[in-house]
């Protein structure tokens, strides 16, 4: 994994994150994510179980998409920069979906030693449906 490095001074309101494209989502990734997260809810693993629960089939863990968004952030801003990440889970990610994570700078503020950048972040499928949307705050180094 490579982390980005961006300076507070070089960020402008309206700047966009480089899009991070994930997928097509495969079952094996959901099984790996179950192990990584400890969330073994069969609704993400067993198609028959998911249908019996009234869904059209298995779907991805919401936190997997939130993790993708966090990766888009750290790929751009660097490791250890994320101070806050808050998202709403708006729609389901299904098998074969391609998830693109995006973000845009909303505001900058520097007080004392802390230089913060606030962004709106979201992830959408190939059908342009937003699956997660939220806000993030990153603390960036300054050039001075």
């Amino acid at each position: 994994m490579k982390y980005g490095k961006v300076y507070f001074d070089d960020v402008k309101v309206g700047d966009e994150l480089p899009p991070l494209v994930k997928g097509p989502i495969q079952q094996i990734q959901l099984t790996r994510y179950a192990g990584a997260s400890g969330d073994f809810n069969p609704i993400h693993q067993d198609d028959e179980f998911a249908r019996a629960a009234g869904m059209s089939g298995v779907f991805a863990h919401g936190m997997l998409s939130m993790g993708f968004v966090a990766q888009a952030l750290t790929d751009w801003a660097g490791a250890g920069t994320v101070r806050k990440l808050a998202v709403r889970f708006a729609a389901l990610v299904r098998l074969k979906d391609v998830v693109t994570c995006r973000g845009r700078v909303l505001a900058k503020s520097a007080t004392g030693d802390v230089a913060l950048v606030e962004l709106e972040v979201w992830a959408e499928t190939q059908k342009a449906e937003k699956v997660v949307s939220g806000r993030a705050t990153v603390a960036l180094p300054t050039r001075a």
């Binding site: 994320v82 101070r83 806050k84 990440l85 808050a86 998202v87 709403r88 889970f89 939220g134």
Partner: peptide, 12 residues
């Protein structure tokens, strides 16, 4: 449907 937010004040 749900939501989640995280705040980090120190590195792990």
């Amino acid at each position: 449907m749900a939501s989640r937010s995280s705040n980090c004040s120190a590195p792990c």
